[in-house]
């Protein structure tokens, strides 16, 4: 995490076990919702909880592989890069996230 996130501070938000496999939990960050996802193979990703299309709650979508399908109109968003899969176009902001053991840490700007 260099460049943009040189100033990032890592903030513990809970254990990976608190997030259901193939699911997500919401972290309320300064009044905004962040969706923190857990894949079948325990990969953890964080996105702004808002689909680039009509702001659907990605945290409520169905997770598969390293993607989530938005519950409103079935856009498929990549968890790693926040990008909509073709043919749709758009991008949701990602949040740096890492695991320390079972602990989940979000990278937050100071």
């Amino acid at each position: 995490m260099d460049g943009d996130f040189a100033q990032a501070a890592w903030h513990e938000i809970g254990s990976v076990d608190d997030i259901p496999r193939l699911g997500a939990r919401i972290v309320r960050l300064h009044g905004e919702d962040i969706a923190v996802f857990r894949t079948a193979s325990d990969g953890v990703f964080a996105l702004h909880d808002s689909c680039p299309h009509k702001q659907g709650q990605l945290s409520q979508g169905i997770v598969h592989g390293e993607s989530v399908t938005c519950p409103l109109h079935n856009w498929v968003i990549g968890l790693a890069d926040g990008r909509a899969k073709e043919p749709d176009e758009g991008c949701t902001r990602t949040i740096p996230v890492r695991l320390e053991g079972r602990r989940v840490l979000l990278g937050l700007e100071r």
Binding site: I13, G14, I26, V27, R28, L29, H30, D33, V36, L106
Partner: peptide, 8 residues
């Protein structure tokens, strides 16, 4: 029905 964490 609950958020995982709230960061202010």
């Amino acid at each position: 029905f609950r958020s995982l964490a709230v960061v202010e």
